[in-house]
């Protein structure tokens, strides 16, 4: 019988004093936090999880074959989130660089895109587990590249500096050998960011989806669309 049981409320493990890492943090907060984290971990690239106790396998169960479909789920409801504070911070910065606030709509962080990315790379299913192996090391790569070039955490870079890195990894097909790994990461990360962004009402507006609203009748495409396509409505 269906129980629609969900895991017990999940402890994110984030220190309570930290600001919500789903939103874009003020630069000074990030600087302070990274300084503290670096001091604590004694490593420069504190996103590196390749060592012992590194990228842990996902052991949480999935949502099962009979989840309750009519409730509203938040990231973390179905399984625990696993990105570290540093990874989330870098993800927020990169997602906002990919999907900034502009005339089309708000920035990715405003839509809590990083929560989705965290949920995705924390999911127990094979496709997501594969992406986890790209995203988590990719964030570490991004961080070390940022430090190598600019001596600073990615989240603290200026737009021009971010652009410097992203230009080298934004298109896998054209990426040169040193940037192949970064480009693979960027492609997957951008795909996840867009998949999350465009699943929201603000994203629907940005892409031009109108729907999911009850209508008394269905009129088909408006005259301007028919004219543009040079077609006539053939169903009378």
């Amino acid at each position: 019988m269906p129980t629609h049981d969900l895991p017990a409320p999940f402890d994110s493990g984030l220190p309570e004093r930290m600001p919500d890492p789903a939103i874009r943090l003020p630069r000074r907060t990030v600087l302070k936090w990274f300084a503290a984290a670096a001091a604590a971990s004694q490593v420069a690239g504190c996103l590196d999880r390749s060592g012992p106790g590194g990228l842990a396998p996902i052991t949480a169960p999935g949502y099962g074959t009979d989840p309750l479909l009519t409730r509203v789920y938040k990231a973390g409801d179905a399984w625990p989130l696993t990105l570290t504070m540093a990874e989330r911070t870098a993800s927020v910065a990169l997602a906002d660089f990919i999907m900034p606030a502009d005339a089309y709509g708000p920035a990715a962080s405003k839509l809590r895109v990083v929560d989705f990315i965290d949920e995705w790379v924390s999911a127990p299913y094979p496709g997501q587990v594969n992406d986890r192996k790209i995203i988590v090391p990719g964030l570490a790569w991004l961080e070390s590249e940022s430090r190598r070039r600019y001596g600073a955490a990615f989240a603290t870079l200026s737009a021009a500096q971010m652009d410097g890195i992203c230009a080298d990894i934004c298109f896998e097909k054209n990426a040169t050998a040193p940037f192949k790994v970064g480009a693979r990461f960027f492609s997957v990360f951008r795909g996840l960011t867009a998949g999350a962004y465009y699943s929201t009402p603000a994203g629907w507006k940005a892409i031009g989806y109108e729907g999911n609203v009850p209508l008394p009748k269905f009129d088909g495409p408006p005259p301007a669309v028919l004219a543009m396509l040079e077609v006539e409505q053939t169903v009378k």
Partner: peptide, 12 residues
């Protein structure tokens, strides 16, 4: 955006 994984298909 109200579903796990934005509603995409999974093995379950």
């Amino acid at each position: 955006d109200q579903a796990p994984l934005r509603g995409v298909g999974t093995p379950e």
